[in-house]
Design a protein around this nucleic acid. Structure first.
Length: 954
RNA sequence: GCCCGGGUGGUGAAAUGGUAGACACGAGGGACUUAAAAUCCCUUGGCCCGCGAGGGCCGUGUGGGUUCAAGUCCCACCCCGGGCACCA
C-alpha cells in the first residue's frame, strides 16, 4: 500500500496526545538531559519554514537522547509579553491578552503539526500571572540585594544596612558600584548614617541595590509620550511618525549588570558556545585596564578614565561630554550662552548619530582651566560631543599626540599638540602605537609604553591624584518601559520613596486600562488604571522589558506549576543546567547576557547550584527566502527609457502567463515587488504590465534575501505539510545543509526527501499486496487505516546477509556519530544511501529494518512510529533502545587502493585487507598496469598508507 | 577600522592531510502508459582526443609556501555575510 502521510501523521498526533507519550517526570534513576529552544514570541504572522529549523534539530537530539536512556526535558512555551501585541492593541483596541492568546493557539497548532516531542504540560507563558509572579519575585530579590565586592557576590541589602550602622561607609564600600549616571556618594560614618533621614538612607541604598531607581538619560518623545530605544530614533525624530525626540533625564529602573561584568567575562571561558558569540559578549562587556586621574579645578575636580596614563604629559586640554553634570558649574559667565547653546543641541543628538559622524568635529570652550596633577599647568576644559556621557566618567584627558580623536579636535580648534612618543609625526596624525617609547618631558621619558603606564599609576596613587582601574563598556540595563504589555514592577511609593511590595502581594496583576496609550500628561499607560495603589500608596507605572521573563524561564520549566516557589529545589538539583540550547545568534548580547546575569545572581543567593544557565549553545542559521527579480525596460513620462526591477517570488517559467494579485504589489527600494499568494483581486500580468510599467521583460533572476512577510517570499510550513507531510518537512529542513549556516529555502528540492520516505516505506511493503505496484487511492488508504492499522507489511524474519548488515551498521555508525556533532544533513544523506542500497539488495529483513526504523525515528517520528507498530510493537517507539553499531559488520576483505603517481590517482587496485605495507608495495609494483606506467624506471619512493592510498613518486 | 563566520558543479551540499563533487534538486536521454501523474533505468564539473572500449589536461575565491600528497595546514590578498565601534 502507498505511503499516506496525512493519515499516518494525524493518527500519531492523536495517539501521542492520548498516551501522553511526551510527558516527562523526574526520574532519578536515569541521567538527565535538558534540551531547550530559545523562547519564541508568538507573533501574529505565524511560523514560516525558517522558524522550526532549530526546533527540529533540538527535537532530534531530544528524541535521540531518550532512545539512549536519558531522562529528557524538552519543553516549549511563549515569551508572550511584547510590543507587537501592544501596537495592535493601540490600533484596534483589542486587549493584548486576547491577541496573544490567539497567536499562541495558532503557534501551537503549527508546532503540533510538525510532530515535536515537547512536553506541553510544562508550557509556560511570561504574561501569565502565575509565571510573572515569580519574575516579580526575582525583581524583589534584586531590589533587596547589593553586590559585595569583598565576597564578589550579591548579598541581602539588610547586611549592608547593618554594616552602615556598625561602621558607616568607608573605603571599598564607598567605591560604590554606580550606574552610568549616578552622582558620587562620599564616604560616611556610622553616626552620620544614623543621622540620615529616611529619604537620604533610601537614596544612599539606591546606589547599592541591584535593581535601582536613578535618573538616566533617555530618548524622550513627547508626542508619543514614551521613551524610545536608540534604533527607534533617526535624525532626532522618532522613526514612527517623525516626532521630535529629546534627550532627557528621567527616573528609570535599572539592573546593575555592571557588577557582574568581570564574572560574565570570566565565565565565558568554560562554555561550549561558538567563538563568535563569546567574542561578541567579550566586546560588549568591553573590559579595559587603565587609571582614573583627577584634575583639580577650584574646590572641585574633573575625573577622567584613561587606558594611557603614560601619556599624561601630553595632555593639552580636557573634554567633557555635553551631558556631564559639571558642565554648568565650570562654565564661566562669559562663555555661558555659547556653552548652553552647544549643550542643548549636542545632547539631543542620539548617540548613534554622534558616533556615526566621525568627521564632524564640534565643541566649545567652557572658559575654565583645570590643574595638571603632575605639572600644575593650566589645562583648558572643553565640551565635545565625541565624548559620551555614559562611558567611563564622561570626561577625557585629551592627548592629541597620542589619540586620533583628540588630535582631530585639537587641529580643528587650534589647540596645542604635544608629542608623547619617539618617532611620532604629530603634524600628520596621532601616534597610537603601544610599543613606542615615551619622549615627553618628565619622569616617564625614555620608558616603553607598558612600563610607563605602570610607573604613571604608581605616581598617581602616591600623590593621591588617581588610581589604577579596570573599566567596562557594559552599562547597567534599563529595566523600566513606558508600556502596558509587560510585567508590572512590584514597587510602591511613599513620600516619593520607592518601596518593594511584600511577597504576599504578588503577583501584582496587570490592571485593566481604558486605552493602551500614555496619559495626556505623559504618564505610562498603567497610570490610567483605577486604584493603581498599594494600601493607599501609588504603584510604579512602568513595566518590565521583554527580556525579564526570558532571563529565568528555563528554571520554571523544571517545575512549572509550583505555587510556593519559583522552582522546587529538587527539580533544579535534578534538571540542572541546560545541556543544549538552540536559537538564533541575534540574541548574542541581549538575551544571552541577561540570561547569564540572572543565573549568576540566583546562584549568589543560593537559589540555584550553578552559575551559568547553558552548557552548550548552538546557533542555527537563517533560512532565507527566494525572490525572483525581473529586469524590465520601462519608459518614464519624459520618454527616457530605463531599466526597472520587478520581483516575483515564484519560478521563472511561465511567470508572466499567470495572474498576479495587484494588492500584493509594493514599490520598495526603487523596485516593484509582486507576490502571487493570497489574492483577492487579480490582474493578468499583461494588464499589470500595461498598467504599471508598459514594458517588455528583459531578464529574470533569483535573489536570496531574508524571509519575511514584507518581502512576500514567506513559505508556510502548513502548506508543505499538507502536500508532503511533517516527516518530509523535518527531513528536508535538516537536509538543506549544516544547521549553523544560513541557506536559501527552495521548495523544489523537497521531492528528494519525500521520495526517500516513500522508498523507505516501500521496503516494508514490497510484495505485500496484489496492488503494491499501483498506489491505492486516498479513500482506500483511509478505509484500511480505520480497520486498525493491520495493513499487511511484508517483512522477512530470515537472517540478514553480510551485505545487508554492512549497510545497516554503516548507517547506525554514521547517525550515532553525527547527531552529537549536530551534523543532521549528513545523517539524512546516509539514510538515503541505506535505503537506496537496501532497495538494490531487495532487503525486507526485520533484522535490518527494525533497527533502522529506530534510528530514523528522531528525524521522521510519524512514519517510524507507524512502521514500528506494524512490526508488531505495542509500546511506542520513543523509548525503544537505540541500536548500537558493531564494527565487525563493517570489516571488508579487500580494499580498492587508489594508486597515484606523484599524487595523481591513475588506477584502482583491489588488495586483501591484511597485507603489510611491504606486501602492498610489492603487489602494487608487480601489477602489469603499474609496470606499464613506470615504463621500466624505478620509482623514487613509494608511500603506502594501509587502507587509504598508495602514492608512487617517480 | 576591529572581531567572528564563509567562498567547492546550473542549485543545496559532502569530504579524520590520502580517489574532490557523496547525497539530493534541476537538466538531458530512455522504459512503462492512449495520455498525464507516479515509478524505474542511464548520463550529468569543464575542456580535449577516440567510432568505441578508453585516455589526457584543467579544476575547491586569488597568489605564494609546507608535504610523497592540500578543499583541508602556513603566509599574503580579494570578495560575501554577521557583530562591534569617536569606548578614552
Amino acid at each position: 500500500m502507498a505511503y499516506e502521510h496525512t493519515d499516518i501523521e494525524r493518527k500519531w498526533r492523536e495517539q501521542w496526545r492520548k498516551r501522553g507519550t511526551y510527558r516527562v517526570e523526574r526520574d532519578p534513576a536515569r541521567p538527565k538531559y535538558y534540551v531547550l529552544d530559545m523562547f519564541p514570541y508568538p507573533s501574529g504572522a505565524g511560523l514560516h519554514v525558517g522558524h522550526p529549523l532549530g526546533y527540529i534539530a533540538s527535537d532530534i537530539v531530544a528524541r535521540h537522547m531518550r532512545h539512549r536512556g536519558f531522562n529528557v526535558l524538552h519543553p516549549m512555551g511563549y515569551d508572550s509579553f511584547g510590543l507587537p501585541a501592544e501596537q495592535y492593541a493601540i490600533q484596534t483596541g483589542q486587549h493584548p491578552a486576547k491577541t496573544t492568546e490567539e497567536n499562541a493557539a495558532r503557534y501551537r497548532q503549527q508546532l503540533d503539526a510538525i510532530g515535536f516531542s515537547f512536553d506541553w504540560d510544562r508550557e509556560v507563558r511570561t504574561s501569565d500571572p502565575a509565571f510573572y509572579k515569580w519574575t516579580q519575585w526575582i525583581f524583589l530579590q534584586l531590589f533587596n540585594s547589593w553586590y559585595d565586592p569583598r565576597a564578589d557576590k550579591a548579598r541581602p541589602i539588610a547586611e549592608l544596612v547593618a554594616r552602615f550602622e556598625r561602621q558607616g561607609c568607608q573605603g571599598q564600600d564607598a567605591d560604590v558600584l554606580t550606574g552610568d549616571t549616578e552622582e558620587f556618594i562620599g564616604p560616611f560614618t556610622a553616626d552620620e548614617w544614623k543621622g540620615f533621614d529616611e529619604r537620604t538612607r533610601q537614596m544612599v541604598l539606591q546606589h547599592f541595590r541591584l535593581a535601582y531607581l536613578s535618573d538616566a538619560w533617555v530618548n524622550w518623545c513627547p508626542a508619543l509620550g514614551t521613551v524610545l530605544a536608540n534604533d527607534e530614533v533617526k535624525d532626532g525624530v522618532s522613526e514612527r511618525g517623525g516626532h521630535p525626540v529629546e534627550r532627557k533625564r528621567m527616573p528609570q529602573w535599572s539592573l546593575r549588570i555592571t557588577a557582574y561584568a568581570q564574572r560574565l567575562l570570566d565565565g565565558l571561558d568554560g562554555l561550549d558556545w561558538s567563538e563568535s558569540i563569546k567574542e561578541a559578549q567579550r566586546n560588549w562587556i568591553g573590559r579595559s585596564e587603565g587609571a582614573t586621574v583627577r584634575f583639580p579645578l577650584g574646590d572641585d575636580f574633573i575625573e577622567v578614565f584613561t587606558t594611557r596614563p603614560d601619556t599624561l604629559f601630553g595632555v593639552s586640554f580636557l573634554t567633557l561630554a555635553p551631558e556631564h553634570v559639571l558642565v554648568p558649574k565650570f562654565t564661566t559667565p562669559d562663555r555661558r550662552a555659547e556653552v548652553e547653546a552647544y549643550v542643548a543641541t549636542a545632547k539631543n543628538r542620539s548617540e548613534r548619530e554622534r558616533q556615526a559622524e566621525v568627521d564632524k568635529v564640534s565643541g566649545v570652550f567652557t572658559g575654565s582651566y583645570a590643574k595638571h596633577p603632575f605639572t600644575g599647568a593650566d589645562i583648558p576644559v572643553w565640551v565635545g560631543d565625541y565624548v559620551l556621557g555614559g562611558y567611563g566618567t564622561g570626561a577625557v584627558m585629551a592627548v592629541p599626540g597620542g589619540d586620533q580623536r583628540d588630535w582631530r579636535f585639537a587641529k580643528h580648534f587650534g589647540l596645542p599638540i604635544i608629542a608623547v612618543t619617539e618617532g611620532a609625526d604629530i603634524d600628520k596624525e596621532a601616534d597610537e602605537r603601544k610599543d613606542a617609547t615615551i619622549c615627553s618631558e618628565g619622569f616617564l621619558k625614555g620608558l616603553k609604553v607598558p612600563q610607563a603606564i605602570t610607573r604613571a599609576i604608581e605616581e598617581l596613587e602616591r600623590i593621591g591624584a588617581g588610581t589604577g582601574k579596570v573599566n567596562f563598556r557594559l552599562r547597567d540595563a534599563a529595566f523600566g518601559r513606558q508600556r502596558y504589555w509587560g510585567e508590572p514592577i512590584p514597587i510602591y511609593y511613599k513620600d516619593d520613596i520607592p518601596y518593594p511590595l511584600p511577597e504576599s502581594a504578588l503577583p501584582l496583576v496587570l490592571p485593566e486600562v481604558d486605552k493602551f496609550l500614555p496619559t495626556e500628561s505623559g504618564e505610562p499607560p498603567l497610570a490610567r488604571a483605577k486604584n493603581w495603589a498599594y494600601e493607599g500608596h501609588p504603584l510604579e507605572t512602568t513595566t518590565m522589558p521583554g527580556w525579564a521573563g526570558s532571563s529565568w524561564y528555563f528554571l520554571r520549566y523544571m517545575d512549572p506549576h509550583n505555587a510556593e516557589r519559583f522552582v522546587a529545589k529538587e527539580a533544579i538539583d535534578h534538571w540542572g543546567q541546560v545541556d543544549l540550547y538552540i536559537g538564533g545568534s541575534e540574541h548574542a548580547t541581549g538575551h544571552l547576557l541577561y540570561f547569564r546575569f540572572w543565573t549568576k545572581f540566583l546562584h549568589d543567593l543560593g537559589l540555584v547550584p550553578f552559575d551559568e544557565p547553558v552548557k552548550k549553545l548552538v546557533n542555527q542559521g537563517m533560512v532565507q527566502g527566494m525572490s525572483m527579480m525581473a529586469n524590465v525596460l520601462a519608459s518614464s513620462r519624459n520618454g527616457e527609457e530605463h531599466y526597472r526591477l520587478l520581483a516575483l517570488n515564484n519560478k521563472v517559467e511561465g511567470a508572466f502567463e499567470r495572474n498576479y494579485p495587484v494588492d500584493h504589489v509594493t514599490f520598495r527600494d526603487g523596485r516593484y515587488w509582486i507576490n502571487e499568494e493570497g489574492a483577492n483581486r487579480t490582474r493578468s500580468i499583461s494588464a499589470f504590465r500595461d498598467y504599471y510599467l508598459d514594458a517588455p521583460v528583459i531578464e529574470l533572476k533569483p535573489v536570496v534575501e531574508k524571509m519575511s512577510k514584507s518581502k512576500f517570499n514567506v513559505v508556510n510550513p502548513d502548506d508543505i505539510i499538507a502536500k508532503y507531510g511533517a516527516d518530509t518537512l523535518r527531513l528536508y529542513e535538516m537536509f538543506l545543509g549544516p544547521l549553523e549556516q544560513s541557506k536559501p529555502w527552495d521548495t523544489h528540492g523537497i521531492e528528494g526527501t519525500f521520495r526517500f520516505l516513500r522508498k523507505f516505506w516501500n521496503l516494508f511493503h514490497a510484495g505485500a499486496g496484489p496492488d503494491q505496484s499501483v498506489p491505492s487511492t486516498h479513500e482506500s488508504a483511509v478505509a484500511s487505516a480505520k480497520a486498525g492499522g493491520g495493513d499487511p507489511i511484508h517483512v522477512s524474519d530470515d537472517a540478514a546477509t553480510k551485505a545487508e548488515l554492512k549497510v545497516l551498521h554503516a548507517t547506525l555508525k554514521k547517525v550515532t556519530e553525527d547527531i552529537p556533532k549536530m551534523s543532521f544533513n549528513t545523517c539524512v544523506s546516509q539514510f538515503m544511501i541505506a535505503v537506496n542500497e537496501l532497495h538494490t539488495l531487495k532487503c525486507n529483513k526485520r533484522a535490518v529494518l527494525e533497527p533502522l526504523t529506530i534510528a530514523l525515528s528522531p528525524f521522521a517520528p510519524h512514519i517510524a512510529e507507524e512502521l514500528w507498530e506494524k512490526l508488531g510493537h505495542r509500546e511506542g517507539i520513543a523509548d525503544a533502545p537505540w541500536p548500537t553499531w558493531e564494527a565487525e559488520h563493517l570489516v571488508e576483505d579487500s580494499f580498492s587502493y587508489p594508486i597515484s603517481f606523484n599524487g595523481k590517482t591513475r588506477l584502482q587496485l583491489a588488495l586483501p585487507i591484511g597485507l603489510s605495507k611491504d606486501e602492498v608495495e610489492a603487489q602494487v609494483l608487480a601489477d602489469p598496469e603499474v609496470l606499464a606506467r613506470l615504463d621500466g624506471k624505478a620509482p623514487k619512493k613509494v608511500i603506502v598508507v594501509p587502507r587509504r592510498i598508495v602514492n608512487i613518486v617517480v
